[in-house]
Computed example of a mutant assay.
Amino acid sequence: MAKLTLYLLLIFCISSTALATIPRLPRRSRLRAYIEASCQTTRYPALCVHCLSTYIHTNTTVQTPKQLAQVALSASLNRAFYTRAYLLKVAKELLAIKAKEYQAVKDCLEQINDCVDQLTQSINELRSLDREGHVGGNMFWHISNVETWVSAALTDASSCVDAFPGRNMSKLKATIKGKVLNVAQTTSNALALFHRFAARFRAAAGATGKP
Rank of each mutant, 00 (worst) to 15 (best):
A174N: 11
T120Q: 01
A174C: 12
L181N: 11
T155I: 12
L6V: 05
L119W: 07
N113G: 14
A20L: 15
T120D: 04
A96V: 09
Q70V: 06
T61G: 10
P23G: 09
T17G: 08
R32E: 10
L73W: 01
L193M: 03
I56Q: 01
D162M: 08
Y44T: 01
N182E: 03
L88H: 09
A72G: 09
E110M: 06
V49P: 05
L181Y: 12
L95H: 10
K179A: 13
L6W: 00
L6R: 07
E147H: 11
S29K: 02
R202E: 11
Q40P: 11
Q67C: 04
I123Q: 09
V135E: 05
D162Y: 07
V49L: 05
A190T: 05
S159K: 11
H195K: 08
G166P: 06
T120A: 12
E147P: 15
C13Y: 02
A198I: 00
C48M: 00
A198D: 02
G166R: 03
R24K: 11
E93K: 15
D130K: 02
T21M: 13
A46D: 03
H142A: 12
A152W: 15
V180D: 06
S158R: 06
Q70R: 01
I11E: 07
Y102G: 04
T42H: 04
D114K: 04
A157I: 04
N113W: 14
A199Q: 04
A80D: 06
F81H: 10
Q111M: 13
A205L: 02
T175W: 02
P65D: 01
K89G: 12
F140M: 11
A96T: 06
K89C: 12
Q111F: 14
Y86Q: 12
I22A: 14
A153L: 13
D162Q: 11
